[in-house]
Design a protein around this nucleic acid. Structure first.
Lengths: 197, 197
DNA sequence: ATAAAAACATACTAATTAGTATGTTTTTGA
DNA sequence: TCAAAAACATACTAATTAGTATGTTTTTAT
């Protein structure tokens, strides 16, 4: 069993690592950098994680996964109009969330981009993350079918992936074009959602 | 003036670097690795490029830019139906181009993802690259307006960015879900294109 | 043909990397 | 309270990094 303080140290490492990785990328964020900003020593780091990748995987499951889960529950309560909920989720992610910095994109998408092709374990962990999101959207779309707000012929799974994929794409464009392209995207996205009616 | 052999050496470095960067990322591809696979010595490398970033920028403008230009001219001749041309371009990029390896995504998109936020010079060079593609699509859409194949009310610039962004997004998803999600995406993409009529 | 410049080769350096060896301190359960 | 385990600290290592210093060879223009 681990002490409260030890758990705090571990979480501190994971959270600071998450911020650094968000801004600089996973592979170019060094363990030395992480321990420097956390004020934790190397001994503590490698006591909690047997190597850097184990920390990275813990970061995904213990910081990113819960963070996304929380955002999903808030954005998609499946109460009102499903298309409005989905649009609202997108708008909130792109324009309202104070954590995101446009030029750095989305931490999860960045991580997929960088690590999915490089490491099977990361691929799995990230796949889980993305799938969780896609499934939440699928559920919202299915609910929409029941309430007749969404066309019965729509392939909800395919549509959900298309939406997540679109999000990833515009996050990437934002790195080049900035906030303006988010606005344009949202306009186009609204049009797209209307084709699902 | 540079000799033919010297120009070949330089291009050889750029092309091999491009392949390595495609598979491993820019920052995690070392100069040592590049010169090892090119059979070029360090002296030659740093004779042609004063540092790694200068090589990276040359790679973008001298390998990636021309490569994309060639693909664009072939895919969008602006002769037949603009929507069919755009769909064909997407399909060919995702499913037919023998250079692309699904798990590694798209070299240009990867580069944007990794470098646009890290280095102003890279951001500019990549922005140019992406803008060039978007402009080609815009032109095709505009042509489509003239021939009445595309709705006059469509914002062609916004639509072009939306398409490029969608491409980037699905390239990222492909790293997780593989070829299947390309197929799904193309189906959805076709639907989307039809809304532009 | 030859001097000058261009092109390339070899051997180095200082900084950074992930990870380890070996400690000391702190917490925990009996 | 006290031994054992957990948690952390310090000092190291071997490999890798971008880049340089100093050469030699090749090409070019006259």
């Amino acid at each position: 069993m681990s002490s409260k303080k030890a758990a705090a140290t571990r979480l501190n490492i994971l959270q600071k690592a998450f911020e650094l990785v968000y801004k600089n990328g996973y592979r170019t964020t060094s363990v030395d950098e992480i321990i420097a900003t956390t004020q934790v020593t190397k001994g503590a780091f490698f006591y909690h994680f047997k190597n850097k990748d184990e920390m990275g995987l813990a970061m995904i499951s213990e910081v990113m996964q819960p963070g996304m889960h929380k955002a999903l529950i808030e954005a998609l309560p499946n109460k009102g109009n499903p298309l409005e909920e989905i649009y609202g989720m997108m708008e909130s992610l792109l324009l309202k969330d104070p954590f995101f910095i446009i030029k750095y994109g989305c931490p999860a998408i960045n991580m997929v981009e960088e690590m999915a092709s490089q490491n099977e374990d990361f691929n799995k962990a990230l796949s889980k993350l993305v799938t969780q999101w896609a499934e939440a959207i699928t559920a919202t779309l299915e609910k929409g079918k029941e309430t007749r707000k969404i066309n019965k012929d729509i392939n909800t799974k395919e549509t959900a992936i298309y939406i997540v994929s679109g999000y990833g794409g515009i996050r990437n464009m934002g790195k080049i074009y900035g906030r303006d392209c988010y606005i344009s995207y949202l306009a186009q996205f609204k049009n797209y959602l209307n084709t699902l009616k």
